[in-house]
Design a protein around this nucleic acid. Structure first.
Lengths: 153, 153
DNA sequence: ATTCGTTTGCTGACGCGTCAATAATCTACC
DNA sequence: GGTAGATTATTGACGCGTCAGCAAACGAAT
């Protein structure tokens, strides 16, 4: 650990703008989903559930699909069950497991929210980027995402 | 509102990778700051406070500096005051106001955390990007951040 | 069959963030 | 001066997310 190499002005400006973009984008998406009565967390679970086969998904598989830990998933499912968006039932093949299913209300909610959500993502993000910028951002994102914790994990 | 234009495969891949990058980055930064005993929220307040003149900052000014609403700031300051990172005192020129000051412990905390934080941002982000990518990302970020909510605010 | 380690899902405690409501004070206008 | 409206800071309620810990059930080795 040498003495700190602070960010140069170019990088600092990027870093700041990057955070402001994230914030702006998140707020736009949250506002649109809130109009549909859903949070981002709700939506992120409802989408894979809506694409699941008829008997739903095991909590374990849903968790790995969205890359959440089991605790986070359990808390969120509790809230969504209370609101009638999903139901839980015992898993027939593994007594530890729980099958998660969309209720009709849950399916209606996600189907009502989805078009507006996509439209929001387009208007506030995708449609503002050129094809080259999309490719650059994909390259940046995958590189950063896959960057091992090098030293010190 | 026409019938939904779903994202094409290129955009969808970018959108997914973008979220995964954000997640990875946030986790790396949170982990490093946690090693220094701070949360991201703590750090974001401590930095402007550490650069403030001797008598600290008014809560109002601190809020606008980090672009938080007063409620969020008040909750965070309460937690930080309990931990001895900051103190509040009455504002001499406006009886509604509150002056926020770093305690010696708060100053030590931010000064201890800052080099590692910058190093983390570099290793996990800035140093992985070419100068052209930094410029592209700055352009993307400012454009998205400044994009008015066009129709329907 | 018993034991041992793992997997699965849940819970409680707590930090973070938003919203709505509140009290105190300031400013401007009459 | 006095009142009306704005600004400032705080609070309580609630949703979200992490962490540590738990109990039930599984699977494999003995």
């Amino acid at each position: 650990m040498s003495n700190p190499r602070w960010l140069d002005e170019r990088a600092a400006r990027m870093w700041r703008a990057f955070h402001e973009m994230r914030r702006h984008l998140d707020k736009a998406i949250e506002r649109q989903l809130a109009d549909a009565g859903l949070s981002t967390a709700d939506y992120n679970l409802l989408v894979p559930l809506s694409e699941a086969p008829g008997d739903g998904l095991r909590a374990r598989d849903l968790a790995s699909h969205v890359d959440w830990d089991r605790s986070r998933l359990s808390h969120q499912l509790r809230r969504m069950e209370q609101r009638g968006l999903i139901t839980r039932r015992d898993c027939p093949t593994d007594a530890r497991g729980t099958m998660i299913m969309l209720t009709p209300a849950g399916r209606r909610a996600v189907e009502a929210a989805a078009p507006g959500h996509v439209e929001t993502v387009r208007r506030h993000f995708v449609d503002l980027l050129s094809p080259e910028e999309i490719d650059t951002l994909t390259a940046i994102s995958t590189r950063v995402r896959d960057s091992g914790a090098d030293i010190a994990p």
